[in-house]
């Protein structure tokens, strides 16, 4: 028997595999495909205080070994989430993580306040890859001082473990990772999508209505892995790793590189059973390696001595 359970800054997970925000709906969309009780957690589609319509279509385009999306954070809003989704989600024995965002510091704070009081939510995950529409349109997660301001403000009101989800669209991920830790994050998760673009050469138009979008899927895995490895060394809080995890082998790479848990995103589209298969694969790997607990794997990367 391998002990797959973890306690990450007070977030209890029965195993280290969490479905990533925006790729698993509100969880319920997948209940016909997998037993949701068997995965570690579900990070729900990014929530905002008010419902959001999102971007015009086309919203996605496939790229080599990946996809670009510009959904535009369409969501039902926190009220409808609490009223319509939470009663159904509460029935499952898995960690429900409320991913949320805002257009301003005030909106982030209001969202965190509202979600903190909801029974059955295990943690808050703050998506900071959004622009500050109230002041200057700078993306919260790419500017360390803005990041500190918004995370610090949310920290004051958040009554649940706070995960800050970092944007990879920065020069040095360790700078924003440290900024998140210093301003009160309990956990950091990374990476969100890498910004990208695709053009239709016949019509000479961008393939996405939004012109640019976020790249996800296997194409981004090496970039994500390196950023997770760097961040895990730069901070002393737990790190959740994601980006391009399709199979259990990918997940193990992230765990070895220092991630305490992983999230599975785009893979859910390709195979709705992906997250469950990854749980099983990690467990079999631990058994084969003769380790009694998943915790022995985390951060156990062996770097050969230079020379």
């Amino acid at each position: 028997m391998v002990d797959m359970s973890l306690d990450i800054a007070g977030i209890r997970l029965k195993n280290p595999v969490i479905a990533a925000s925006g790729t698993f709906g509100y969880g319920l969309e997948f209940e016909k495909y997998i037993d949701l009780n068997l995965i570690g957690g579900i990070s729900v589609k990014g929530l905002s205080v008010k419902p959001r319509q999102g971007n015009p279509t086309p919203r996605i385009v496939e790229t080599p070994s990946g996809m670009l999306n510009a959904i535009g954070l369409q969501n039902i809003g926190i009220d409808a989430f609490i009223k319509d989704k939470m009663p159904l989600l509460r029935k499952y024995d898995t960690a429900i993580i409320a991913n949320f965002f805002g257009d301003s510091v005030d909106e982030y704070v209001e969202a965190a306040e509202r979600l903190s009081d909801v029974e059955g939510i295990a943690a808050l995950e703050m998506n900071i890859s959004c622009p500050n529409k109230q002041e200057g349109w700078l993306v919260f997660g790419t500017d360390p001082s803005l990041l500190k301001r918004v995370v610090g403000a949310v920290r004051k009101v958040a009554k649940l473990p706070l995960i800050v989800k970092l944007s990879p669209n920065v020069t040095d991920i360790t700078v924003t990772a440290r900024a998140a830790e210093e301003s009160g994050a309990d956990v950091i998760s990374l990476i969100n999508t890498l910004t990208g673009m695709a053009v239709d050469i016949e019509s000479r138009k961008p393939k996405l209505a939004n012109i640019t979008g976020g790249l996800s899927g296997p194409a981004i895995k090496p970039v994500a892995l390196k950023m997770v490895w760097q961040s895990a060394q730069a901070v002393s809080i737990p790190v959740i790793g994601l980006g391009g995890i399709m199979r259990w082998e990918d997940a193990v790479e992230f765990l070895l590189a220092g991630a305490s848990a992983v999230q599975v995103g785009t893979a859910n589209f390709v195979d709705p059973e992906a997250s469950l298969k990854i749980v099983e694969g990690i467990e079999a790997y631990c058994r084969r390696k003769g380790v009694g607990s998943i915790r022995e794997i985390i951060g156990s990367l062996k770097i050969p001595a230079k020379g």
Partner: peptide, 8 residues
């Protein structure tokens, strides 16, 4: 996704 989850 085909499942109502990605909103694309």
């Amino acid at each position: 996704c085909g499942l109502g989850a990605c909103l694309s």
